[in-house]
């Protein structure tokens, strides 16, 4: 007889037996040992059909093609820049992938990107050895300046962004800050110093309470209480979430703020 030994959403530790019997299938971050399915991470359990899956609560970011990340330029080479990706692996940003304009041979590359600069980039290639190629030639990808960068647990990035970008749009509308969330856990915030701080605190709150229900409401309450920002015109929708359908959520939130004022 097959049976599941843990409840949906419960927290499991490495080596914990999640299910017994051949009727269930080991999903991500689990493995089969004889009749048993065991977890190989500290995570929470989700079931979909017959597959049982462990979702890590922490852990290293694994570079993936098409991910948008925030990185830091750490070196300049003949052909481009080496970028720290907040992982064990440096990435390569080639000259041709960094700028649309023609770069002359022998031109001082530090005029385009200097060591220490932070960039929003996209992963275009990741080899089995985690050699990473980057591009900066898509809308929204660029060098960032000013504001502040914070680091969060990358496993919480989807919560910070929210369903169809709802969470991030809420924060943007309530604080007037520009926010870019990198899949590698680095977040860039730019606005007034006071609102940047409120935004940082809100994001840390999401990170801390990522598994709670009614998170959007809690963050809304937190922002209403702490933010002094009064939106005059609808804020620009330069978001870097994976899904572009945020206009609806944003209009909704703007109206909400207005009625509160």
């Amino acid at each position: 007889m097959s049976k599941i030994l843990v409840k949906e959403k419960s927290i499991v530790t490495p080596g914990e037996v999640l299910a017994e019997g051949m009727d269930y299938l080991p999903g991500q971050h689990t493995y089969r040992q004889g009749e048993k399915i065991l977890s190989e991470v500290l995570g929470f359990v989700t079931l979909s059909g017959r597959a049982i899956k462990a979702n890590p609560l922490s852990g290293p970011y694994r570079p993936k093609v098409r991910d948008k990340i925030i990185g830091k330029v750490v070196d300049i080479t003949f052909s481009g820049w080496r970028v720290n990706t907040n992982t064990a692996y440096l990435a390569m940003l080639n000259i041709k992938d960094a700028s649309t304009r023609f770069v002359r041979k022998g031109e001082d590359l530090s005029k385009i990107l200097a060591i220490g600069d932070f960039v929003v980039v996209k992963l275009t290639n990741v080899t089995s050895q985690n050699l990473i190629d980057l591009t900066m030639k898509e809308p929204g990808l660029r060098k960032i300046a000013g504001g502040r960068i914070i680091k969060i647990n990358h496993q919480k990035v989807p919560r910070v962004i929210g369903r169809e970008g709802s969470m991030i749009t809420l924060i943007k509308n309530k604080t007037g800050c520009e926010i870019t969330v990198g899949q590698n856990g680095l977040v860039w915030i730019k606005g007034t110093p006071e609102e940047e701080l409120v935004t940082e605190q809100a994001i840390k709150l999401i990170e801390e309470k990522a598994h709670e229900g009614g998170l959007t409401e809690k963050i809304d309450v937190f922002l209403t209480k702490n933010s002094k920002y009064k939106p005059q015109t609808p804020t620009p929708t330069k978001t870097f979430t994976k899904t572009p359908t945020k206009t609806f959520a944003q209009t909704q939130n703007t109206t909400q703020t207005k009625t509160e004022n």
Partner: peptide, 21 residues
Amino acid sequence: MIENKQTISELASKNKRLDGR
């Protein structure tokens, strides 16, 4: 890897700090 040097310096000249203190 995160330093926020420039922002810290700019804020300081306005008697402000990154963490609001």
